[in-house]
Design a binder for these strands. Structure first.
Length: 887
RNA sequence: GGGCGGUUAGCUCAGUUGGAUAGAGUACUACCUUGACAUGGUAGGGGUCACAGGUUCAAAUCCUGUACCGCCCACCA
């Protein structure tokens, strides 16, 4: 089926002025990714929307592609190299890049192939990669534009550093996780002035600082107190000695110090803590970096140089212990940043990086959401988005890795050399200084505008992967290229319609796309953001490969088929709530797919067996049964469509499921199976066909296969395929409501007969039924055959009066011979029903006697309650009569 | 420390704007070899809708508080 779709180009979309566009851009999966349940959920939702809109007559475009995933991919290829006993340094930057591209050629489209197995109806001819040639143009364009606007800058700041990946990370990439640690209370001796200005160090006089990272003390350059803290007034004039390093530390006052926490005195390590960094800047403290980029202590760590940070921590603690400087330690839960790619504990590090100024970009992105130009589903994410946007921090975009878009900045070697002689780029004003000899340009410049030299080196760093991802909704169309295709496509498809994603990448991606769209296209990138839940295992734990609790969607596909997987996921995924999965949960889909298949087989068999010609679907709607099913179908079409419009996939799926299985198969097909004439066949096929269409977005393969089968097995003229057929609309018949109501009563009566027989312990034993009805005898006569079959009867007699009434409603009364069967459980069941109805009746009665209810409730409601009361009492009367007949 | 969710049948969850006798899937029980389907059919048991207040003629649904669970954000060293 998939090959058929590809061959006939049903997934392809073009700017088509005759149609309304509907466009979704895929959240580009990482090239290193393999399909997991999160992908399955995310992409099934998108495919449901895309297929639904396509059938509705929209020019439906699902834009596919992959993400180069800088750090993740680099790590994968590094591991591959390591197996050969090589490090990336061994083969050099060029060699490593070659390996990366080779890896991409080999494995980069694995996930795309897996998406196809899922049934994803993307326009694959448009597949993009965040590092393909055209895409690089977009990235460079954006960098240069932002730079020129003053929104990109370079500077020495404290950033999140992953010592394993040896690169800077953005705040979002440093995932906070709570870890069990210790809070150490360490004594710092105080030096004070004695008598005639003689400075004396008194071991008895000390202050205590608390820290969770004792190793950072090697880089302490001050201690800080809160200016209002009276306890430490005396300290202001004193000097503190940093143990081990024997360095004099100034005491600074800063409001950021919380007197309540720890001892109220803080050690200040400007080069290794974000808060201390700010204090360092503010109080002009010295910045001492004590670590190499891999978090091994450097020469500034004195005797500890060469130790890893955690090794160093232990060694320092031992030394402090020996000197009696550890006052105490207490267990402490601290939240530390972890690299979101390799989970290593982040080390804050001062380094020269590139940043994007976010506040100016955020402004219009906030507005767009506030003015509902971009809407969130469920709406609660709106607040989360706004909260983040309003407190946005600058974005560190440079990464010290080799896989990614190289920063389009060139340095004139000549100018830099001169500059280095003049000054040292060590302090705050680097931002200004670095501009000299630095050229920000899309392409390598011909010559330096300053000195005319032709010697340049390009910035070594690459850009954060998200710096390319945030352009996805328009860069995929070819922006900034200005050819006619790009222009036409962007005008037609942009802004896109719906973005479907998990909440995890709300900040990474969604928020930034809104900013990029508004900044570069002057227009939001999408109108609706649909945020679905996280896929978890049966215990509620997030599925992840490292935890080993994954259910592999590909295995489910092998076992049950993609349709089963898709349908099950859609049934389970209530909008926005997390999805808890276990193997059994896919049975819903499997069983339903099986049911659809068998129902079809049966109908075709009946058509064949009865030798009825079905060459069109123009049927007569005279029979109440046909009207009944068509009316139900109409409701199903209406509700399913409404649910899909509101992104309630699960409700939509349930709606069709319920109709197809329980109304169509369980009742309609059962009723008509023995009187299968041409008109019935047409009605049945019409219902089947429309059900298939409603189900196609969820269950694409089987519905298409059956559709093709119907084309072959009947001579009806049908569309080419179901994927491009039209979305069902309600049949415009005028229904005979009374007939339908009577049929509903009849069906209910059949249920009651079965019920009574089971209560009487008669099981499926066939009985002879007596019916007494004033007006509706004909219904029983006319439908005699199937009623007998469905209610398991051996005969139906119509009578003027009955000896006893086993069941009655407003239309008819029934009786049948029960012989000398034990009626015990029948009576019990009867009593139970009576009790329940009595209770309800009492409640309704109380309501109707409540003057406030009569005054305040709407007249409609009051009427309803009255009708309900009458109905209840009629039922009660009948049941009580029946009881008296048996006792 | 802030914010956001959740708490409904043994389990997993629906329940859109307050107006059923609170639903589904699954599990369980009974019966059914009805030639489309046992991946099926028919029926059944099982819920004081977390707790406490409040608003209302009427609350699973709205408000307040409490408890527990989960998630997100934040420079408590």
């Amino acid at each position: 089926m998939y090959a058929y779709w590809l061959d006939s180009g049903v997934f392809e979309a073009d700017a088509n002025q005759g149609k309304n566009p509907f466009c979704v851009v895929i959240p580009p999966p990482n090239i290193t990714g393999i399909l997991h349940m999160g992908h399955a959920l995310n992409n099934t939702i998108q495919d449901v929307l895309i297929r639904y809109k396509r059938m509705q007559g929209h020019e439906s475009l699902w834009m596919p592609g992959t993400d180069h995933a800088g750090i993740a991919t680099q790590n994968v290829v590094e591991r591959q190299l390591a197996k050969e006993g090589l490090g990336k340094q061994d083969i050099g930057r060029d060699g490593f890049e070659k390996r990366l591209w080779k890896w991409y050629e080999e494995y980069g489209s694995t996930i795309i192939e897996q998406l196809k197995k899922l049934g994803a109806s993307c326009d694959w001819k448009r597949t993009r990669f965040t590092m393909d040639e055209g895409y690089s143009e977009a990235v460079k364009e954006v960098f240069v534009k932002l730079y020129k606007k003053g929104l990109v800058y370079r500077g020495n700041y404290i950033i999140n550093w992953c010592p394993r990946c040896t690169t800077a990370l953005s705040d979002e990439e440093a995932a906070r996780k709570e870890i069990d640690g210790w809070l150490y209370y360490i004594r710092y001796p105080v030096q004070h002035t004695k008598g005639k200005g003689q400075e004396v160090r008194d071991e008895q006089k000390y202050i205590v600082v608390a820290t969770t990272r004792p190793e950072t003390m090697l880089g302490d350059t001050a201690v800080a107190i809160n200016p209002k803290d009276k306890r430490y007034k005396w300290l202001k004039k004193a000097k503190v000695i940093l143990p081990i390093m024997e360095r004099q530390l100034p005491v600074v006052e800063d409001k950021a110090v919380d007197p309540e926490f720890g001892t109220g005195v803080v050690k200040v390590t400007p080069a290794h803590d974000p808060a201390d960094f700010l204090m360092g800047k503010k109080h002009n403290l010295e910045f001492i970096n004590i670590m190499h980029e891999n978090a091994v202590l450097n020469e500034n760590a004195g005797e500890f140089a060469g130790m890893d940070r955690f090794e160093g921590r232990q060694a320092i603690l031992e030394v402090l212990q020996e000197k009696g400087l550890i006052e105490r330690k207490e267990p402490y839960k601290l939240s530390a940043g972890h690299c979101y790619r390799c989970h290593t504990v982040i080390e804050p590090r001062v380094s020269l990086q590139w940043f994007v100024r976010m506040k100016p970009l955020a402004k219009s992105a906030i507005e767009a959401v506030q003015k509902n130009k971009v809407k969130f589903y469920p709406v609660r994410w709106r607040k989360v988005y706004l909260n983040w946007m309003e407190n946005i921090q600058d974005w560190c975009i440079s990464r010290q890795i080799w896989w990614g878009h190289r920063i389009p900045v060139y340095y004139c070697t000549n100018c830099i050399e001169k500059k280095n002689q003049k000054s040292n780029i060590k302090n705050e004003k680097d931002e200004e200084l670095s501009k000299e000899g630095m050229i920000v340009a899309r392409e390598k410049p011909e010559k330096c505008p300053g000195c005319g030299s032709k010697e340049f080196i390009q910035d070594e760093d690459v850009l954060d992967t998200w710096f390319s991802s945030w352009l996805w909704p328009f860069a995929t169309f070819g922006w900034p290229k200005v050819d006619t295709t790009t222009k036409r496509d962007l005008e037609y498809f942009y802004p896109t319609d719906t973005l479907v994603t998990a909440s995890e990448i709300l900040f990474f991606w969604v928020a930034r796309m809104v900013m990029a769209g508004l900044e570069f296209m002057n227009e939001i990138p999408f109108r609706d953001v649909l945020i679905h839940g996280t896929v978890r295992d049966a215990r509620g734990i997030k599925m992840s490969k490292s935890l080993g609790n994954i259910i592999d969607p590909l295995e489910i596909i092998d076992k049950f088929g993609a349709d089963s997987l898709r349908f099950s996921l859609m049934m389970l995924a209530a909008s926005g709530s997390d999805v808890y999965l276990s193997d059994e949960k896919f049975l819903v889909g499997r069983n339903f797919c099986n049911k659809i298949w068998n129902a079809t087989r049966f109908l075709l068999l009946k058509i064949k067996d009865n030798n009825v010609a079905v060459d069109n679907l123009h049927f007569e709607l005279n029979s109440p049964i046909d009207q009944w099913v068509i009316k139900r179908l109409n409701q199903t079409i209406k509700n399913t469509t409404a649910h899909l419009e509101n992104y309630r996939m699960n409700e939509a799926a349930k709606e069709v499921y319920e109709f197809f299985w329980h109304a169509f198969c369980d009742w309609y097909v059962e009723i008509v199976k023995d009187t299968f004439r041409a008109n019935t066949a047409k009605v049945a096929l019409y219902v089947l066909l429309n059900s298939l269409k409603l189900l196609h977005p969820f269950i694409p393969f089987i519905t298409e296969a059956i559709f093709q089968l119907l084309k072959k097995s009947t001579s009806c003229s049908l569309d080419e395929g179901i994927a491009r057929s039209s979305w069902p609309v309600e049949h415009s018949t005028k229904f005979n409501e009374q007939d339908i109501a009577h049929l509903d009563s009849l069906l209910d009566t059949i249920r009651q007969i079965r019920n009574i027989k089971i209560d009487l312990g008669m099981g499926t034993k066939k009985v002879n039924l007596q019916v007494c009805s004033k007006k509706c005898t004909h219904i029983w006569v006319k439908n005699r055959d199937w009623i007998m079959r469905l209610a398991s009867l051996c005969g139906i007699e119509t009578k003027e009066a009955l000896e006893r009434v086993l069941y009655a409603n407003e239309l008819w009364a029934l009786n049948f011979t029960i012989g000398d069967i034990d009626t015990g459980s029948f009576i019990v069941s009867l009593e139970k029903k009576i009790k329940k109805l009595d209770d309800v009746s009492e409640k309704v009665s109380a309501r109707l006697h409540n003057r406030n209810f009569l005054q305040n409730a709407s007249p409609d409601t009051v009427e309803q309650e009255k009708a309900k009361y009458d109905e209840l009492n009629t039922q009660l009367r009948r049941l009580k009569e029946l009881r008296s007949a048996f006792t």
